[in-house]
Design a protein around this nucleic acid. Structure first.
Lengths: 202, 202
DNA sequence: CATTTCATGTAATCGGTTACATGATTAG
DNA sequence: CTAATCATGTAACCGATTACATGAAATG
């Protein structure tokens, strides 16, 4: 049983991207710099040490590529134990604490989930998220209703903004579940007896 | 010109709460633990050292209160330079970078703004935020439109969730501006010549 | 009297930011 | 040839997390 120091969100983001396909540090930096994932640090001083730690941990392995006429690149691929660790992170239950701390990590997990665990796991994740949100949001609204009038206007509005975000997230969850269900339905149009009436293509 | 090491968001949150009124470390912890501000750490190992730093920095001053029959409390109040620093933080321009990094700090600033700088400043802040959002969000939507179809469904949905949050924020900004304007209108019903037709109460 | 809550801290560890350093390769 | 870009690092600093420590006052 290898000891299991806590891994940061940034590190999981790196692990997830490497899980998709082998990548070099520079590729990862570019992804952080250019896409909306930029919220997780794009500084080399964070990424390269994180990759080192992952390699020491045994979750990834690197190979220096020196094709002729190309710059030397250290390409990382995920290992078996690394994939296990990654999937375990994806499978963590959705907790209220995680919702309060911000939805960043939640959405990161979801973004990786389909490729790593399949569409069914993504739907389960969304259902769990919905349960937690439905349990959490009413209390927030109640708090605003109770204490809002005694707060300064800007404080009340700031709280309202947070609530609106959660409500938006609730609507998104519903939409996402629906989207996934149609997606699954279109991939497996008939469950048991596939009556092949028209030409089926692979 | 005192050197001006960067101050963390948590530290500004503490500074803002102390600006409202003098408080002890324990009060601050409770606020973080009990209200929706909990997203900024509630551990004593973060709060007490942060308060020490603020005091060394000269932004706050402490006084140990030992009223008879009460526990000893170290109560912090904001100093003149501390208030300057705080207001300067509140007055920082709204940048796209700040929007990308997350709206947490933005909303924190806004929540403190009315009390510290007045309602007019809050409106100005909201207007600037609106400008930045209007400049930023269309690009995100365009990106989703362009690259979405080639992404895995979960990735596309995750991006969509982020966009929905920004759109929600845009609607909130509009609502908040309106709210503030009615607020100001109700406080100053007639700007120049106040014709007192009915009994006015303080 | 014992336990809980109030109230303030300390120490170890570690990850991230910032800034700097280094070379190799392609473009102008 | 020079500048920009590719690509990988390193080092100093510092703040946050976690967990532990302490003691006094209220509560039962």
């Amino acid at each position: 049983m290898r000891e299991h120091k806590k891994i940061s969100v940034l590190t999981y983001a790196l692990l997830g991207l490497i899980h998709q396909k082998p990548r070099a540090g520079y590729d990862l930096r570019k992804i952080f710099a250019e896409t909306a994932m930029g919220s997780f640090s794009n500084s080399p001083g964070a990424i390269y040490p994180a990759l080192e730690r992952l390699e020491k941990h045994g979750a990834i392995a690197s190979e220096v590529m020196e094709s002729a006429g190309l710059r030397r690149r250290r390409v990382f691929r995920i290992t078996e134990p690394g994939e296990q660790e990654f999937k375990q992170w994806l499978s963590k239950p959705v907790t209220r604490d995680e919702i309060i701390r911000g939805t960043g990590e939640l959405m990161l997990r979801f973004a990786f989930m389909e490729q790593a665990l399949g569409a069914q796991a993504a739907i389960t994740f969304l259902r769990n998220l919905r349960v937690e949100l439905d349990a959490y949001v009413p209390g927030l609204k109640e708090y605003l209703h109770q204490h809002g009038p005694q707060m300064p206007l800007s404080g009340m509005l700031a709280l309202d903004s947070g609530i609106r975000n959660y409500e938006t997230l609730q609507r998104w969850v519903a939409y996402a579940i629906q989207t996934y269900q149609s997606f699954l339905a279109s991939r497996q149009p008939l469950s048991a007896n596939q009556i092949n009436t028209s030409g089926g293509q692979s």
